[in-house]
């Protein structure tokens, strides 16, 4: 079984989903250009259409549930919240009353502006979210390393993510340890604030001290040898079609931007 597993690395790594198996850079460029286009357009019809597209597309990639969960939270805190706030914020230019809630008049102008702003915020956020939902960080880093970015960068990104998981576990253990010493963690805010220091300090100190050993351990595995690296787990390189696609999307974004700026200048 282990031999079989080992040999599976001889082929390019694949998930079986058309989108997910695109080269990370391709996904990055496509997502980013679409995300940016919502900002450039600054139009709620376009922005929300793109958001709708994200939803459908996310299900198509098999990450629909995951995407919906985070995106809905964003939708509430950015989308709805912003729209409501904007009704308070805008004082000038409001001429067309729309409706009234308990004596609070909503105007059409500020409502549209708020929709525009929240649509591009969500349009941008959704694109980035979709990218990270469908691209593991290690894939992105793999692509970066092939572009000549140092493996140190990969280490920093990937190890940070693991550290977050590990330190979370440690923080629970530390909290227990300090409770066992008699430090109260329940009670009024002052008592609880006081408990913050005996928890965070051993966490940081312990984690810092461990870096010494970590660097020694990584060095023992030739981390700082300056040679060309090889990769056990490999991704299928960018195909010709992917390259053309990336080029098209980038050109589209650039022309859109130019057109928008020109239009603004003419006005």
């Amino acid at each position: 079984m282990h031999v079989e597993f080992g040999n599976s690395f001889k082929k390019f790594y694949k998930t079986g989903n058309f989108w997910c198996d695109l080269y990370p850079t391709t996904k990055l460029i496509l997502c980013f250009t679409v995300a940016m286009s919502t900002i450039v357009m600054n139009n709620w019809i376009y922005g929300f259409s793109v958001c709708l597209f994200y939803f459908i597309f996310a299900f198509f990639t098999g990450h629909g549930k995951q995407f919906t969960k985070t995106f809905l939270i964003l939708f509430v805190i950015i989308g709805l919240f912003l729209v409501v706030i904007r009704q308070v914020g805008m004082r000038t230019g409001n001429v067309t009353p729309m409706f009234e809630i308990f004596g609070w008049i909503w105007y059409r102008e500020s409502f549209i502006t708020s929709l525009d702003v929240s649509s591009y915020m969500l349009g941008f956020a959704g694109g980035i979210l979709l990218f990270f939902d469908t691209t593991p960080m290690r894939d992105l880093m793999y692509a970066f390393e092939h572009m000549g970015v140092s493996h140190v960068t990969s280490f920093i990104m990937l190890s940070s993510m693991q550290n977050i998981i590990d330190l979370r576990k440690t923080s629970v253990a530390i909290l227990e340890s300090q409770k066992s010493r008699g430090i109260e963690t329940d009670g009024n805010i002052l008592v609880r604030s006081k408990a913050f220091f005996p928890t965070i300090s051993p966490l940081i100190l312990g984690a810092f001290s461990s870096t010494e050993e970590k660097s020694i351990a990584m060095d023992a595995r030739a981390f700082s040898v300056k040679r060309k690296h090889t990769f056990l787990r490999e991704l299928k390189p960018m195909s010709q079609i992917e390259k053309i696609l990336c080029l098209l999307f980038s050109l589209a974004l650039i022309s859109l931007t130019v057109w928008k700026i020109a239009a603004a200048l003419i006005k």
Partner: peptide, 17 residues
Amino acid sequence: GLENLGVPKDEMIERVI
């Protein structure tokens, strides 16, 4: 360690196994 030393993939797999 083998990745960092630039060992070719097939050899790497064999050695790890």
